[in-house]
Amino acid sequence: MKTGGSTLTAAKVTLLALSRRRATLAILVLLPTAFYLARRGTPGQSVRSLLFGVSWAISTITYFATVEASTLRPRLSLTGWKAYRLEAGRIGGLVISGTVLATAFIVLVAADQDVRNLSGVAAALFAAVVTAVAFGEVVGRIVTKEMEGALTIFLFAGLQAVLNPFGTVAKFLPFWSSREIATYAVDGPSEGSLSNGVAHAVTTAAFCFVASAALRLLNRPSRNKLAA
């Protein structure tokens, strides 16, 4: 077995630890479901609410996973673990968890709603998962105190909910992309743009992951001088 750990091992550990948080998993499912059911009578709004719930729940879980990992990371680095493998494994594990959840919601929407473009809804859900993981990750790097971090995510999610989605400010928030793709999928190309939504998702995820990696490098443990 190679030294420095493997990304797969880190991903497995992330999934294992998350699977033991039963109450967290229940809320992870409940939050988007509640948002969806609250707007069930209107197909477009119900899907957009569902996406908002998925984004909020997954970014919060990612945030706590990132903060929790920060207590273990320095010790694992001393054993020889490569930091980038730990990070990639954790992010991969969270994206897998989110994708499983998203798949369940695609089935729910397919069975419960008559949407014009189900694959578009699937794309919106996947965009929601990836951007939420990226956003939760970078918040976890910047705001290390849990209460403040949870409130920071609440702040961004709340702003995304109340701001006019066609306004400029809303487009600078992390969860705008999935809403745009969902609008395209449910209401048609005249209302939403797939390309704009995808571009926003890719930009958001790239920005957050690069910022997170940069913060990791800035705060990495110092190297002691080597003895001659």
């Binding site: 077995m1 190679k2 030294t3 420095g4 750990g5 493997s6 091992t9 550990v13 294992l16 630890a17 998350l18 033991r20 948080r21 929790e68 207590t71 273990l72 320095p74 010790r75 694992l76 001393l78 054993t79 020889g80 673990w81």
Partner: peptide, 28 residues
């Protein structure tokens, strides 16, 4: 170096052997 902190430094949701395997993986 092996470091044992005063508090924390373990994952509350992992079992003991899972910790051993995770830390052992760093050493190969």
């Amino acid at each position: 170096i092996g470091y044992c902190p005063q508090i924390g430094g373990i994952n509350p949701n992992l079992r003991p052997t899972e910790h051993l395997q995770l830390f052992g993986a760093g050493f190969g």
